[in-house]
Amino acid sequence: MHALLTASERNGHTCSAHAMGEGPGDNRCFSHDPHFTITAQGQTVEFRVVQETDRSEHIPTDKELADAKKFSWFRIPRYDYTPSDRLRVDLRGGQLHQGSEWADSSERSLEDQLSEIVHEIGLRGEAAERERLAEVEEARQSHLRWEAAMVEARAQYAEDYRVRQLESQAAAWRRATRLSEYLEVARARAEVLPPGLEKTKAEEWIEWAMGHVAREHPMAQPLRLPGIPEPRAGDLKPFLRDWSQ
């Protein structure tokens, strides 16, 4: 393990030891804290060093045979497990490449496989770095797409604002035209009234009304592109399509 940690640090990785509580001697699940971790390019790989066991057929004792006859719930184990002189290293964390466990075997000792473990750590670190760079690039591309969408949304917002102003001016023109037509009829009616209070009041009303129509008539205003107000919160949402979800 010292050789493994030294080689890992020589490759630029960082190592950290962990406190281990008691746990099963040959547990292939990481149900307990790792013995140590090695972090390669931001990817943390957890390690557990396990003493493997040997399994042999269990020979029932006289007491076990008697208990099995006496108690219906008693079960005689089929196998006995004894600690061996073999070790296994389990790895967890990151993208698996060549394996997640290495152990002593009759063909190769664990010491002879340390270079493979070091290589696996490096591969997992490289994969993590590629994933990180891909995420950074995706975030950059997403930001560029967002900026482009915002430019397009602002352009569409401006176009929509101009269209609404145009429609508003057309509606105001129709209203002013209708009122002007009405006032022409009203003025003709007032001209035939006999002199007196009724005619005076009618002429006062028509004079004010004609002034009001003249002031509000869109043709009395300069014809030019309207200024586009700065969009408020939510104004651009209808033009952002998928970005507005």
Rank of each mutant, 00 (worst) to 15 (best):
H2K: 14
A7W: 10
A7K: 09
S8C: 15
H13G: 03
S16A: 13
A19W: 09
P24E: 10
D26R: 08
T37C: 06
I38F: 02
I38S: 00
E46G: 03
E46H: 15
E46W: 07
V49R: 03
V50T: 05
Q51T: 07
Q51S: 07
S56Y: 11
E57T: 13
I59A: 14
I59D: 14
I59N: 05
D67H: 11
S84D: 05
R88W: 07
R88S: 06
R88F: 08
L91Y: 13
G93E: 01
G94K: 11
H97D: 06
S106N: 13
S109N: 10
S109P: 04
D112F: 06
E116N: 08
E120G: 01
A127L: 00
A128Q: 03
E129A: 12
E131P: 02
V136W: 11
E138V: 04
R140V: 01
E152D: 15
R164E: 01
S168N: 12
A170D: 14
A172T: 12
W173V: 05
R174G: 03
R175C: 12
R178A: 09
L179M: 09
E181R: 05
E181K: 03
L183D: 00
E184M: 03
V185C: 02
A186S: 07
R187W: 12
V192G: 04
K199H: 08
A202R: 12
W205R: 01
W208T: 00
A209H: 13
H212P: 00
H212D: 04
P222K: 13
L223K: 11
L225Q: 11
P226Y: 03
R232E: 09
G234R: 11
G234T: 10
F239V: 11
D242F: 03
D242A: 07
W243A: 14
S244Y: 01
